[in-house]
Design a protein around this nucleic acid. Sequence first.
DNA 1: TGCCGCATTTGGAACGATCCAAATTTTCCG
DNA 2: CGGAAAATTTGGATCGTTCCAAATGCGGCA
Lengths: 350, 350
Amino acid sequence: MDRATPIRRKITLVDIAAGCGVSRATVSLVLRNSPLVNKRTRARVEEELRKQGYVYNRAAANLRRQTSSSIALVLNDLANPFFAEFAAGVDEALAAAGFVTLLGCTSESPQREQAVLESLIEHGPAGIILSPAEGSSAAQVLAAVGARTPVLLFNRELGGDLPEYAHWDSLALDNRHGAQLATEHLIAQGHRRIAFFGGHKDSSSCRQRHAGYVDALQAAKLSMAPSWRVECAPTRVDAAAATASLFAAEPAPTAVVCYNDAVAMGLMLGLNRRGLRPGHDVALTGFDDIAEAALCMPALTTLTAMPRARGRQAADMLLQRLREPGAETRRTIASVQLVTRASSCPPPSI
Amino acid sequence: MDRATPIRRKITLVDIAAGCGVSRATVSLVLRNSPLVNKRTRARVEEELRKQGYVYNRAAANLRRQTSSSIALVLNDLANPFFAEFAAGVDEALAAAGFVTLLGCTSESPQREQAVLESLIEHGPAGIILSPAEGSSAAQVLAAVGARTPVLLFNRELGGDLPEYAHWDSLALDNRHGAQLATEHLIAQGHRRIAFFGGHKDSSSCRQRHAGYVDALQAAKLSMAPSWRVECAPTRVDAAAATASLFAAEPAPTAVVCYNDAVAMGLMLGLNRRGLRPGHDVALTGFDDIAEAALCMPALTTLTAMPRARGRQAADMLLQRLREPGAETRRTIASVQLVTRASSCPPPSI
DNA sequence: TGCCGCATTTGGAACGATCCAAATTTTCCG
DNA sequence: CGGAAAATTTGGATCGTTCCAAATGCGGCA
C-alpha cells in the first residue's frame, strides 16, 4: 500500500518561493516581517508557508547572520530543588527574550563540567550561565569556553584567578548577611550558646555563611566553643551522622545555625534519634528555603533567596551583557530574606 | 603595549588550513579522525588547531550533513523535584550519547507548551521528550512539531487522538498497579475503611491510580462509601482544605490512599488541624516519593518511580527511535515500587 | 623510462538562510 | 504620454562545514 506519508523532506525557502512564484529573497523578507514587501505578495507567501507547513531553520539563519539564539545553562546539581527553581526562572526569562536554553549538568564534578562546557560551546551559545562545580577553577573553565563567549557565574566563585581580559559577571547570594540575620534572630530569641553546623570550609558559600554567623556573635559579644563548629557534607545523611559532635563537649549549644536546609533536616533527624525535640529542646535555622522547609516538623526557619527570581535575574544580566559587551563587569549580590518558622524557638530554660 | 587580545574573530577551518598549508577538506578529515590522512599531516594540523584555539562549529556541520545533535526536553513543571530528577537523568543519558539538551518549561499551560514547542522545533532537534501540560491535546502538539520529528511522551497522555502516521513512543508509570500496591498494603495492615483522596477525575494518572485502588478493594471484597472519594487539585493547600470532606459522613475512613505526595502532605496538615495524628489515628500513603516524603513527620509511605532512572530510560528510548525510525511504536510502562514508612500504620482499634 | 596502483590531498558544490547592490515594476506629476 | 521617484523584487555571494569526484605524488615493476 502506497499510502501517502505526511513525512516528507524538509520544506525550505526555495520550496515556498517556487510554490508561489517569487524569489527566495522575498520569502525571507516575509519571514522577517520586513515592511518592504507588498501586502498582497506577503499574503500569498504566508498562505503558501501555512499550506506547505514550513518551519524556519534557525541554525541556518544563525550561521549566515553570525548570531546565536541559545544560552547555555550549566548547573552543578539540577536535582537540587533550589537549582531546579533557578533553572525554571532562567528558562522563563530566556524564552521571553526569544532564546532557548541549552542544559548541562555537571554533578559537582570539575571533569564533567569541563566536558559539558566543551560540548556546549561547539553549539555556539551566545552566552553561558554557570553555577560551578565544587573545586572548579577559572583556568579550566576559561580553557573550555574561550574568551569569546560571555559567562555569568552564579552562586559560587571559581578557584584561581581569571586573566583580566575575561570580564565575567557574577550573581551571588548574600550568604554572609543571611547567616548573620539567622544568628541575630536566634540571639533575639534568647539563645546564648549557638553553634554553626555543616558544610565544608573549602566551599566559598560555607565560609561566607560562617563569617556572617561570627559577625552576629561578635556584635552581641557572645563566645564560641570549638565543638560548636562541625563540618559535614551538605546532605541529610551526613548531617544526621554528624549530630553527635555537637554534643561532644559541655556546654552543649541551645541553638544551631545550619549551613543549609538539607543539613538542617539531617540535624532534625539526628536530634530526634538522640531524644531531643528540634524546635523545642534545640532551636535551628537553615538556608535556601527549599519546599520541605515549610513542611517538615517543626517547620524550618530559614533564608530564602527566591531561586526563581534569581534565575530570571541571572538571565537578564547575561542578556544585558550581550546587548553591551563592553560594559563594566557586574558583580551582583542578591539579598536573602529570613523566613521565621517554628524551628527557631526560644531556649527551653526561659 | 600592544598585548595580543585573546578575543579575536572566530577561527574556522580556513584559518587552520591556511595556517599549515593544507586544504579545508584535509582539516575537516582530521577533525573527524578520518584514517585517510597521513600521520605527519594530522600531527601538523592538530598542532595548528591547538595553537589557534579552534572550536568546532557543530551548527554548520549539522546544516551540511542534515543531521542534528540536540534533543528537546519539554516539561510541564521543572520546579517539581520529580521532574527535576527526571531532567537530570535525561541530560545524563543524552550527554553520554553526544547530544545536548534543549530545555523548555510549559508551567502546565497548553498555550505555553505550544509556543515552547514552536520555538524549539526551529532549532531542529533530532527528537522531543515531552511531558505534556495538563489539558494539552494531540492535535495541538502535532501542529506545533509536525510529523517529521520523533516525540516521546512521558508520564501523561495527550487528549484527543493522534493520526496513525504519527507513531509516538511513550513512557508511563504504572499508576494503576502502584495504587493497588499501596491499597493492598493498607489492607494488610488491617484497614477496612479506605478512602481515595485528591487529584482530578479528568487527569489520566488520577483515573489510573483510582482504578488500582478499586482493584485492590474489590479483590479484598471491601466496599467504598461515596464520601471516601474526594477530588482536589494536586497541591498541598488544596488538599489541606479538602480534608474535611473525608469526614463529612459516617463511618469515616481509617486509611487514605492519596493521589500523590503533595496531596498526602496537605492531608497531614489538614488532619493535624482536626486534632488527628497522621500515621497514628489515620494511615495514609502517597505517590512519587519526593524528597520530603522520607523527611516529614510521620515519614510517608509512598511509591517511587525512580525519576532519574526514568529520565535515562526516556532518553534511551528516544535515541533508539532515532536509530530505527521505522521500528514499531513502543508504549512502555515503568513499574513503581512501594516504600513503606511510618505513615501507613495499622488502624488504631487493633 | 613509462605506466600502474595506492595513498593522500584537493577544489567546487552543497546545506538553508541572509545581505546587498542592482533590476524591475508601479506610482506620480507635469 | 514621458520620465523621475518610489516601491518592490531579485540573483549571486556568503556563513562554516562536509561530500564527492578528480587530481596529485610516489614507489614499484616491466
